[in-house]
C-alpha cells in the first residue's frame, strides 16, 4: 500500500517537473528568439511598404515566415487608410496571406473562429466577406454570429436587415450594446433599410435600438421618425426618441420634446430634462422648476442640472 502511494506521488512529481521544464524552456527559447522575430516583422513591414510604391514589380520576400508577414501586414492595415491601404490590401490578396484565417473559421474552437473573424475583417477581400457571411448564417455560437455581423457591417457585406435581425435572433432577445454598435454602423451606410423596418411591426426593444442607431448618423431627414417614436406607447421607445433628438440637435423638435417633461414614466422625464438642457430650450424652465420636486430622485437631479445648464444660469 505504502509503495503504491509512494509510486503515485513520484509519478505526480515527475509529471510536474516535466511540465515546469517544458514551460520554462519554451519561455527561454521564446526570449532568445524575440529579437529575431521582431527583426523579421520589421523586415516584412519594410518589404511591403516598399512594394506599395514599387507598383508590384517586386515579389513577396520568400524567406520570411507567413506568420511574420501576416502580422506585419495586418498591423499596417490597422494603421493606414486611403490609396496606400488599398494597394497593401491588393498585395495581401495576391500573396494569399489570409488563407490560414479562412481555414480557422472552420475550427471547432470558438476562440479560434473569433480570432479568424478579426483577421478576415481586416483584410475584407471578397473571399473574406464570403467566409464571414457563412459564419453569420451557420455558426452555432450567437457571440460568433454577432462578431461576424459586426465585421460584415463595417465591410458593407451584411445581408438585408430583416435577415440579419432574424439570424441574430433579435426578435426574441434583448439587444446588447454590441448590437447597438452594429446597427449604428449600418445606419451610417444604409439608413433607408432601417427607416423601412421602423414602419413595420417590430418589438419595442428593437424599435428603440433602431431609433438609437438611426440618430447616431445624425441625419435630419429622420426627424419625422423620431417624432412618431416620441408618441409610442412604450416608454423605452419614447426615451430613444429623446436621445435621438439630443444627438441630432435640431431645434424644430422643441414642440414634441417639451411636453415629454411631464411624461408619466420617470426615466422618460430624465431623458427629456437632459434633452432640453442640451438643446437649450429655455422655454422649458418653468416645467423644469416643477421637476426639481419630482418624486424620482433622478428626475430631480437631471432637472437641477438642466436648469444650471440652460442659458440664464441657475435661478
Amino acid at each position: 500500500m505504502a509503495a503504491l502511494v509512494y509510486e503515485l506521488s513520484f509519478l505526480f512529481l515527475a509529471g510536474m517537473l516535466a511540465l515546469i521544464t517544458v514551460l520554462v524552456v519554451r519561455r527561454w527559447q521564446d526570449e532568445k528568439n524575440r529579437g529575431a522575430r521582431e527583426r523579421m516583422r520589421h523586415r516584412a513591414a519594410r518589404a511591403y511598404l516598399a512594394r506599395i510604391e514599387g507598383g508590384g514589380e517586386s515579389a513577396a520576400p520568400a524567406d520570411l515566415p507567413p506568420a511574420a508577414k501576416l502580422e506585419a501586414v495586418s498591423h499596417l492595415l490597422r494603421l493606414m487608410r486611403g490609396t496606400e491601404r488599398d494597394r497593401l490590401l491588393a498585395l495581401a490578396d495576391e500573396d494569399r496571406l489570409f488563407d490560414p484565417a479562412i481555414a480557422a473559421s472552420n475550427s471547432s474552437r470558438p476562440a479560434r473562429r473569433s480570432e479568424a473573424i478579426l483577421t478576415l475583417e481586416q483584410f475584407g477581400s471578397p473571399r473574406c466577406v464570403q467566409t464571414l457571411q457563412v459564419l453569420l448564417a451557420n455558426d452555432a455560437s450567437m457571440t460568433i454570429k454577432l462578431e461576424a455581423a459586426a465585421a460584415l457591417a463595417r465591410l458593407g457585406g451584411l445581408p438585408p436587415l430583416r435577415d440579419t435581425i432574424s439570424l441574430l435572433a433579435l426578435e426574441a432577445n434583448r439587444p446588447t450594446r454590441l448590437h447597438v454598435a452594429l446597427f449604428a454602423s449600418l445606419a451610417a451606410t444604409h439608413p433607408e433599410q432601417i427607416r423601412q423596418l421602423l414602419s413595420e411591426e417590430i418589438t419595442p426593444p428593437l424599435r428603440a435600438m433602431l431609433i438609437d442607431a438611426l440618430s447616431s448618423s445624425g441625419d435630419l431627414a429622420d426627424l419625422g421618425d423620431f417624432e412618431r417614436a416620441a408618441a409610442d406607447e412604450e416608454p423605452e421607445v419614447r426615451s430613444a426618441a429623446l436621445r435621438a433628438a439630443r444627438r441630432v440637435g435640431d431645434p424644430r423638435c422643441e414642440a414634441w420634446v417639451l411636453p415629454m417633461l411631464t411624461d408619466p414614466v420617470d426615466f422618460v422625464r430624465v431623458q427629456a430634462a437632459q434633452t432640453v438642457a442640451k438643446l437649450g430650450f429655455t422655454r422649458a424652465r418653468p416645467k423644469l422648476k416643477q421637476l426639481t420636486t419630482d418624486e424620482s430622485v433622478w428626475v430631480r437631479i437631471r432637472a437641477g442640472e438642466a436648469l444650471s445648464l440652460l442659458p440664464g444660469g441657475a435661478s
Binding site: 500500500m1 505504502a2 509503495a3 502511494v5 509512494y6 503515485l8 506521488s9 505526480f12 512529481l13 510536474m16
Partner: peptide
C-alpha cells in the same frame, strides 16, 4: 504509509 500519504498530499 503515514509518510507516503503526507507526500501524496504535498505533491498533489
Amino acid at each position: 504509509l503515514a509518510l507516503a500519504f503526507l507526500a501524496l498530499t504535498f505533491v498533489f
